[in-house]
Nucleic acid binder design. Structure first.
Length: 401
DNA sequence: AGGTATTCACATGAAACTATTCTCTGAGTTAGG
DNA sequence: TAACTCAGAGAATAGTTTCATGTGAATACCTGT
């Protein structure tokens, strides 16, 4: 009996037509062949980098723009093409792409250099060597390369924030010493004001050209979504209004196309699981909800206990009143630690943890001055109210385990 | 009334410390010739 | 004597603590009218 119903389920599953033609087109890793609404930027970047094909060193380039504005995609597109041309015409051109945000890969000076050296076939231990040794290894291998080296550092702001701006300075100085080859640095940054914080010396030697990627507006976003949807879904499966809403929602936030596409994918998956043969607005709403929950649960599960305790404190206080301050949270947190037998951290540290939660997008903070009554950081949750009780419950479980 | 000075409650920064992970080096040990 | 083992020195990193300094505006306190 049971067996039959299960096999029936599978048969039905196979019979059921999928909504997707190609789900891959909605994944973050997907590389479309053409990039829409970035013609101007593509042309500019290409003309800046083109000298590399003539064995002349292109200017260093910095690209700014919010997440999901197509910076990385555009640059990958261009460098891939350049690499192809170079290969065809036998031009020595080495393109290195490195994402500085990846933990344990390239997020410190040492690791970045080690990672870069690994592109030249040098393997460097993850620790134990002095940093200048690693620099030398990288320098040596670049020197052997003889030609132009295009060094693309994605999310370079993360690296500089963590490791200081002398990395930029050092990198720019390597060029002066290189005889056989030259490095061109292409930095990609999500933080628009990032260059302001960089040391003037490094800035003058590095930031020779820069380019800003504006966020997509709702119209552009819609056309991007349409392109992707055409590739990913069968014709006619998307109800009218879905793409519009998806575009409007994300354009309002930050013009983050990545998020819009992910939203669309999840909506599609939900619709398919429900056995619906169209994706409609209701699926989009569910998807939005689901993504938010996933984000928060992911944060909770991956953070250490101290972080969980702080978040739990924030949520617990938020339940009773709407505005909280660091001090109030810290008091609650200390009591909580006592109850849990946890050694409480200093307020200084908790203050940082709260800031990190903001970066993760779980809370919103704003520092305001209340005059005589001090300067405080007001904290509010950026989770939708419906998720809060569940979040609290999960936190409680995590903490007591 | 108008202007300065204080003061609160943290925020923010810098440096130093702790613990852990990893490499490298050289002394001591072992086994085979 | 060559190969092996193993402790100790040195590095990098994450996560924190300690100490120091900064901050914005509501109040307190003057001052001269």
């Amino acid at each position: 009996m049971q067996k039959k119903s299960v096999s029936g389920f599978f048969e039905e599953f196979l019979d059921k037509e999928s909504l997707f033609i190609d789900r891959k087109a909605l994944l973050i890793s997907y590389m479309p062949d053409t990039i829409s609404h970035r013609d101007k930027e593509i042309k500019q970047i290409a003309s800046i980098l083109a000298p590399a094909l003539k064995q002349e060193k292109p200017s260093n380039l910095f690209i700014y723009g919010n997440t999901g504005t197509g910076k990385t995609l555009t640059l990958k597109h261009i460098t891939e093409n350049m690499g192809l041309v170079a290969k065809q015409k036998n031009i020595p051109l080495k393109i290195i792409y490195s994402n500085c945000k990846l933990k344990k890969v390239a997020d410190t000076e040492y690791r970045l250099m080690a990672h870069l050296a690994s592109f030249f076939g040098r393997s460097i231990p993850s620790t134990g060597l002095p940093t200048d040794e690693v620099y030398k290894a990288f320098y040596d291998s670049v020197e052997k390369e003889t030609g132009i080296v295009l060094l693309v550092l994605d999310e370079i702001d993360q690296l500089v924030r963590k490791a200081g701006d002398n990395i930029l300075y050092n990198l720019s100085r390597i060029n002066e010493e290189l005889k056989q080859s030259q490095i061109t640095l292409v930095g990609i940054s999500n933080d628009t004001s990032f260059m302001d914080s960089v040391d003037a010396r490094a800035k003058s030697s590095l930031s020779e050209e820069d380019l800003f990627f504006p966020p997509y507006n709702a119209v552009e976003m819609k056309s991007i979504l349409q392109d992707r949807a055409k590739k990913a879904f069968k014709p006619g499966t998307i109800k009218s209004g879905v793409l519009e809403k998806c575009a409007a929602y994300t354009a309002r936030e930050h013009g983050d196309a990545r998020k819009a596409i992910e939203l669309l994918r999840v909506a599609g998956e939900i619709a398919e699981r429900e056995g619906s043969n169209t994706v409609d607005l209701q699926h989009l709403d569910t998807a939005e909800d689901k993504l938010e929950k996933e984000k928060i649960f992911d944060v909770i599960k991956t953070q250490p206990k101290q972080f969980q305790a702080v978040l739990f404190s924030i949520i617990s206080i938020k339940n009773t009143n709407n505005q909280t301050y660091t001090g109030e949270i810290y008091d609650f947190y200390k009591k909580l630690c006592f109850k849990l037998g946890l050694r409480p951290l200093t307020q200084r540290r908790v203050s940082d943890i709260i800031k990190e939660f903001e970066l993760m997008g779980v809370i919103n903070t704003k520092t305001i001055s209340k005059g005589r009554y001090g300067r405080v950081r007001t904290i509010s949750l950026s989770i939708s109210p419906s998720t809060i009780p569940l979040t609290q419950k999960i936190l409680e479980e995590e903490l007591s385990s």
